[in-house]
Structures are given as structure tokens and as C-alpha cells.
Nucleic acid binder design. Sequence first.
DNA 1: CCGCTGACAGGAA
DNA 2: TTTCCTGCCAGCG
Length: 98
Amino acid sequence: MNEIFKKQTWEITKMIPKGRVTSYGAIAKAIGFPNHSRHVGKAMGGCPEDVPAHRVISSSGILSVPEFQIKLENEGVEIENLRIKNFKNIFWNPLEEI
DNA sequence: CCGCTGACAGGAA
DNA sequence: TTTCCTGCCAGCG
């Protein structure tokens, strides 16, 4: 877990459009570390305010942090009991945006 | 060196 | 659909 790794994850995260979400694993792949999804999560823990960490969730479309539900709903994301509705549709793939 | 833990992933049952 | 299990890697007793 070096600073570079964190910065990379935050960079990608800041690219996520409003009302869209992506997964820890997707970000990990995007920065060149396919099996470091767990570290992406840790990096999000200490991210700056300008990083939309609430748009990063698990690959199954379930929120790891319940508090994010409010923020996401404000952006127009439909959520039902920590589960994103239309997950496939609003999923944002970082690999296709670089 | 060993075992546990964590904003995880993916497949099997 | 949900639960379980294995694979991952870094950090801390």
C-alpha cells in the first residue's frame, strides 16, 4: 500500500460520472493490479473529500458501507436494502474510459 | 514464521 | 437467491 497506489485509485474514482457506480475489482484492474481489490477498499478509507467514494461498491452490486445509500439516492441511483437496482445498467467500466 | 483481519472477487452448492 | 469457500495481499500481534 504505497501512496502511488492510493492516488491511482482516487484518480479513477474521480472519473466516475454522477449517478453511476463501479466496483473495487474494476478499479484494481484499471490501475494494473487485478488481484488487489481489497487494497482499493483500504485506499478508499482514507480518501480526500473530493473523491466520490460512495460510487465504489462490491462487484455484486451491494453497498459495503450503508451510509452511502443516501448519497447515491440523491444522485438518482435506485437502491433497495443495500442492493443497487439496474446494477448492470449504471455500472461504469473504468477500463473502457482510459 | 503463524494466524487473523479487511469498504473484495468469483464460482460452487 | 443466498450462503459458503477459496484465492488475494498488506499490516499487526
